[in-house]
C-alpha cells in the first residue's frame, strides 16, 4: 500500500433544517443560474435543490440533487426524529424513478448539483439569508489507496461463480471496447 497523501478541497454545504423558513429562494436562484442563457428564465421545477416542505408537520428539508439512479430502493425506511416522522426519501439526493424531483420537467433528464461552478460560493447559500444553508470548505488529506489484486480477484471470482466466466469475459470485453 502506498503511503502518499494527497490534498483535496472538500466543500460541504451545511443544512440546518431548524433555520429553514421554507421560502424556496434556493430553488429560485438555482433554476435561474442554470438557465441558458444564465438567469434568462426561472422555474423551480428545474432546480437542483428542493425544499421538501410539509408546513403542518413542520417538515422543511432542503435536499440537493445527487447521482442519477436507474431503480428505486426496494424497501423504504421511516425515521422518527424529535417526534416527527420522515420518509427516507426525504433525505435522498438521487434522481430516481420513484419521484419527479431532480429531473428536467420537459425531457425527464436527471439534474445534479454542481455547486454553481465558477461562482465564489453556491448561489443557494448566498440567497439563503436565514442561514439554513451555509458552506464550509476544508482541506483534507486523502489516502491514495490502491486496490490490492487479491481483493479484486475475490470480487471477480464471486461474480464468475454467480454469472459464469463466459458472461463476465464478454462484459469485460465490451466495456473495454467502449473505453
Amino acid at each position: 500500500m502506498s503511503e502518499d497523501k494527497k490534498k483535496k478541497i472538500i466543500k460541504t454545504i451545511k443544512i440546518d433544517v431548524d433555520k429553514c423558513n421554507g421560502c424556496r429562494a434556493c430553488e429560485v436562484i438555482c433554476s435561474s443560474f442554470h438557465a441558458s442563457p444564465k438567469y434568462s428564465s426561472n422555474n423551480p421545477a428545474r432546480s437542483r435543490i428542493r425544499v421538501i416542505r410539509d408546513p403542518y408537520r413542520d417538515l422543511y428539508v432542503p435536499v440537493y440533487a445527487g447521482e442519477y439512479t436507474v431503480a428505486e430502493c426496494a424497501g423504504r425506511d421511516k425515521y422518527t426524529i424529535d417526534g416527527k416522522e420522515y420518509d427516507e426519501c426525504l433525505f435522498c439526493r438521487a434522481s430516481c424513478p420513484s419521484r419527479d424531483a431532480f429531473k428536467e420537467p420537459d425531457s425527464g433528464l436527471p439534474l445534479k448539483c454542481d455547486m454553481c461552478e465558477g461562482e465564489d460560493e453556491p448561489l443557494c447559500v448566498k440567497w439563503c439569508m436565514v442561514d439554513a444553508l451555509t458552506v464550509e470548505e476544508r482541506e483534507e488529506d486523502v489516502d491514495e489507496e490502491e486496490v490490492s489484486p487479491e481483493e479484486l480477484e475475490i470480487g471477480l471470482e464471486s461474480l464468475a461463480d454467480k454469472y459464469g466466466i463466459e458472461k463476465l469475459r464478454d462484459i469485460v470485453a465490451r466495456m473495454s471496447e467502449k473505453d
Binding site: Y39, S40, S41, N42, N43, A45, R46
Partner: peptide, 20 residues
C-alpha cells in the same frame, strides 16, 4: 413546471442582488 422568462437576464439579476 414551466419557465418564466426575463428580458435582460444579467441586468435583472443585478437588480435582484442589489435588493437582497
Amino acid at each position: 413546471t414551466k419557465d418564466i422568462n426575463v428580458a435582460q437576464p444579467a441586468e435583472y439579476m443585478e437588480l435582484c442582488t442589489e435588493v437582497l
